[in-house]
């Protein structure tokens, strides 16, 4: 969905995220920015129903608004700061999993606009869950699709497709994986095997998103880092994914309880 937020749209860079709150009772939900248009003053976000709060976001209809939108948060992707001559020698492969496809889009677009070589793998469980196919095809050199059930494109996981591409002679200098934590973990293992540097974008738990709470802390290279202000992108080789996955599930018990009780209030009475 597109959200009107002129200051945020003017300041946003690839790799950054924002936080929304659907209504007064809602949680602060961090979402990666999928596109931004400074002239129109809008940012695009993509979400998926996980818990009660994301259900409230999805229930919003065109013309309605969030109670709060704040951002951009986090550091921009590393390539935004790179010197042009360094950038021109790079060959990127983006590995996008599920909803993680959306935040890959502005990164691929940014690089493609500057003439940098970009290939993209989009992976999903099944073809109905593939998103951003046409949009992505327009901002990369080669788009590869894979599905777990083989309903479209390569039959298998993104990791197998990545290995196949490299075996087929594609060569890359940098991989970027965005998707579920487990997918980023295994993609990192594959990249390591292929001796390919990899950046991952961590969707940790957050409250404020400005470095205040520390809910987002992750171990990177044995040091504790705050994903909200020092990330969300980190060197995949250095991330402790097992710890990150455990920490992500910290409120599962409380959330399951909330899901049971929650009756979506947004859009009622229309």
């Amino acid at each position: 969905m597109e959200v009107k937020a002129p200051r945020l749209a003017a300041a946003a860079q690839p790799g950054q995220f924002l936080i929304v709150r659907a209504d007064e009772q809602g949680e602060r939900i961090p979402l990666t920015i999928s596109d931004f248009d400074a002239n129109a003053g809008t940012v695009t976000i993509v979400t998926q129903k996980i818990g009660a709060s994301s259900a409230d976001i999805i229930a919003l209809e065109e013309g309605e608004g969030f109670s709060d939108v704040v951002g951009p948060l986090g550091l921009p992707s590393e390539f935004v700061e790179m010197a042009p001559e360094q950038l021109s020698s790079m060959r990127y492969i983006f590995i996008a999993g599920g909803v993680g496809t959306a935040p890959v889009y502005p990164q691929a677009k940014w690089l493609h606009d500057r003439g940098v070589a970009v290939d993209v793998i989009i992976g999903a469980k099944t073809k109905d869950l593939l998103i951003y196919k046409e949009e992505m095809a327009a901002v990369c050199d080669n788009l590869f699709i894979c599905t777990d059930d083989g309903s479209e494109g390569f039959h298998g996981m993104v990791t197998a497709l990545l290995e196949k591409l490299v075996a087929d002679g594609h060569s890359y200098t940098q991989a970027v994986a965005i998707g579920p934590m487990i997918m980023m973990k295994f993609t990192t293992l594959t990249a390591k095997k292929l001796d390919l540097p990899i950046t991952v974008s961590l969707n940790t738990l957050m409250v404020d998103g400005t470095g205040m709470c520390g809910a987002c802390r992750v171990s990177v290279g044995g040091k504790t880092r705050f994903a909200c202000v020092e990330g969300p992108e980190f060197d995949g080789y250095l991330v402790d994914f097992d710890e990150a996955m455990r920490r992500q599930g910290q409120y599962k018990a409380e959330e399951a309880e909330a899901n049971e009780k929650h009756v979506c209030k947004i859009g009622r009475g229309k």
Partner: peptide, 18 residues
């Protein structure tokens, strides 16, 4: 970084602000 370790900021922000 074990689950169940929080900063007071996180604990209080969840309870007070949120």
């Amino acid at each position: 970084n074990l689950c169940g370790v929080f900063s007071a900021n996180e604990f209080l922000t969840r309870n007070n602000l949120m």
